[in-house]
């Protein structure tokens, strides 16, 4: 494991992703998702919206880091907000 050069931030990052996946699975077992149409142009399930949210979060971070002077925490905040909006109304 030494060669994988873990750091605390990346470890937290992957734990959060794993936790989200586990949470989604549990949620699915408790109440199965129904495909529906929100403000997105396509009908999506819960998992689809999560994926769209995570992918756009990655791009939000890249744009913030690469082309603005804003802090990465700002990008994180926006992403979380966007993810919640997407999950609820997407």
């Amino acid at each position: 494991m030494e060669w994988m050069v873990w750091t605390l931030p990346t470890a937290i990052f992957f734990s959060v992703i794993a936790a989200i996946l586990l949470g989604m699975t549990a949620w699915e077992l408790v109440s199965p998702t129904v495909e529906r149409r929100g403000f997105l142009p396509i009908a999506t399930t819960r998992g689809d919206r999560l994926f769209i949210g995570l992918l756009s979060a990655a791009y939000i971070h890249l744009v913030t880091v690469g082309f603005t002077e804003l802090s990465i925490w700002f990008a994180l905040g926006i992403s979380v907000l966007w993810l919640l909006v997407l999950m609820r109304w997407g």
């Binding site: 030494e2 060669w3 994988m4 050069v5 873990w6 750091t7 931030p9 990346t10 990052f13 992957f14 880091v65 990465i72």
Partner: peptide, 23 residues
């Protein structure tokens, strides 16, 4: 993939000598 993510936030010389560089 995890290893690539780990590399991307550090300046790695070898497993012992590395510095966190953030973004």
């Amino acid at each position: 993939l995890m290893t690539v993510v780990n590399y991307s936030v550090q300046d790695v010389f070898d497993a012992q000598t590395r510095f966190f560089t953030g973004t």
